[in-house]
Every structure is written in C-alpha cells, then in structure tokens.
Computed example of a mutant assay.
Amino acid sequence: MDFSFLRNFGITLFALLNALGMLPIFISYTARETKEVQRIVAFFVSLTVLGLLVIFMLVGTPMLNFFGVTLNSFRIAGGILLLIIGINIVNGKGTNTTDSLSDKQEDKKSNLIEAKSVYSQIVIPMAMPLLVGPGVIANVILYASEAEKIHKGTAFELIPVTAFVTFLVFLVLASGKSLQRLLGNIGLSITQRVMGLFVAAIGVQFMVTGVIDIFTSQIMPELSKIK
C-alpha cells in the first residue's frame, strides 16, 4: 500500500483523536491517583481506543447498517452524551476519584486493582465518545473503504498504523502527572471546568452537524421533489 496514504491516515487519526486536548479531562478524572495508577489507567484507555478503532475499521459500516443507525444519528447521540458530561464537569462532578494519595497502597497489586476501578468509571466517556467520537469513526471507515477500493489493499494493513497512533495517545495520557504538577490544584480545577465547557460545546457541535447533514441529505431532496 502507498506509504503516503498510510502516513496521511496516521496523521489524520492522531489529529482527530486529539489526545492533547483530552489530557486535562483525563487528569481531572485521575487527579488523586498515584503516578503508577494513572499510567495503568492510561494504558487501559489506550487499549480500549485501539480495540474500538480496529472494530470500526473492519466492521464499522456493516455494524451501523445492522442496527439501522446512520452516522449522523450516531453523531447526534454522541453529542447529547458529551453535552451532559460537559455540564457535569463544569459543575465539578467530572471526577470520580475516592481516596487520597496517603491512603493508597503502593504495591503493584493494589495499583492494578485501583486502576481497574478508575478505568471502569471513566472508560465512558474517556475512550468513547471523547477520544473515539463520530469524526474518528467516520475517518476510520472512510480510510478502510479507500484502502480496499482505491489502493487495492485491505483494512488490515491500517492496523499497524492505528496501533502506533494509539501508542502515542498512551504516551500523552501517561504524562498527566507532569502537567498536573505544573498546573497545581487551582490551575487543574480551572482547566477542568474550561475543558468541561469545551466538551459541552463539542457535543452541541456534533448535534448541529448531524441535524444539518440529515436536513441537507434527506429532507432537502424530498422537498425538491415536492416542488
């Protein structure tokens, strides 16, 4: 397969995942965790992102067709979810951490247990729809289709690039403690609420885009037929 095609896919995918933009939100969810726990959670989230990307890459279109769901409907539903999440973050309900650092055991077993607990609480919305949103899903499905129809390859050839991009996402999320120390508690709280506002705005944008696309692709043609 053409290297430039794979390169463009990787760059576009990393840009759409927007791990850097989602980092403050990830920190807000894991602010009270140890560095080791935060890294394990980052690994779990990144692994989930990889799994979701591969699934949508290979069976995205058939899956949506099977459930009778259009990408625009998926975009609107994701937008509603993001709007609710953004409002909760702005109101200070975005973090679900419990114990303070002094109460946490430092051994690997307790870190893993704590990481699993945090991961189960934040996998939705962190992995999806914040990282793997409708735009990412559409991009993956589109490139998988082009790989087969235009470049005479298979969607499987995109998986190594996807794995590399996901590894970059892990590195970004795993650097959370460094940024947390830089911002401090007050800075982190302010950043959390600002990012919550952006999450809500992204949700509204998803809904607006979905409604406009449905109107232009379905309603407008029907109205033109009536005229």
Rank of each mutant, 00 (worst) to 15 (best):
T162P: 01
D213A: 08
K109P: 10
R39L: 08
S100W: 11
I137Q: 04
L50A: 15
P129M: 01
L130G: 03
A31H: 08
E33S: 09
V136Q: 01
P129K: 02
P62H: 07
I122C: 06
T70P: 14
L53R: 04
S117A: 14
R39E: 14
N72Y: 06
V208D: 03
L13T: 03
E36R: 12
E148T: 13
R32T: 06
T61F: 10
V41N: 06
G92I: 00
F156S: 15
S224I: 09
L58G: 09
I84C: 11
N185C: 00
I27M: 14
D103Q: 14
L183F: 10
L82R: 03
G78N: 09
A31S: 12
E36V: 10
P24G: 10
G135C: 02
F206D: 06
I85S: 14
I214N: 05
S46M: 10
N8E: 07
I219K: 02
L158T: 03
L23W: 06
P221W: 00
L197G: 15
M57F: 07
T48V: 13
S46K: 05
M1E: 15
A155F: 00
I25F: 13
L13Q: 02
N91V: 02
T12E: 05
V49F: 03
L101I: 14
F14G: 02
A127N: 01
A201S: 11
G203Q: 11
E157W: 07
I113T: 14
M126V: 15
L47R: 12
G92R: 02
Y143H: 15
M22G: 00
T191C: 13
V41Q: 04
K149F: 10
G10S: 04
V208T: 05
I11K: 02
G78Y: 07
I40N: 13
I55G: 04
L81P: 08
F215S: 10
S110G: 07
G51H: 01
S217G: 08
S117I: 04
L81K: 09
Y119D: 09
I40F: 13
I87N: 06
K149P: 08
F56C: 07
E106R: 07
F26C: 02
V123M: 12
I150C: 12
S217F: 08
I214T: 07
T162M: 05
D107Q: 05
A115C: 11
G60E: 01
R181N: 15
T162D: 01
I190L: 08
I84T: 09
V37E: 04
G187W: 06
A15T: 03
F9R: 01
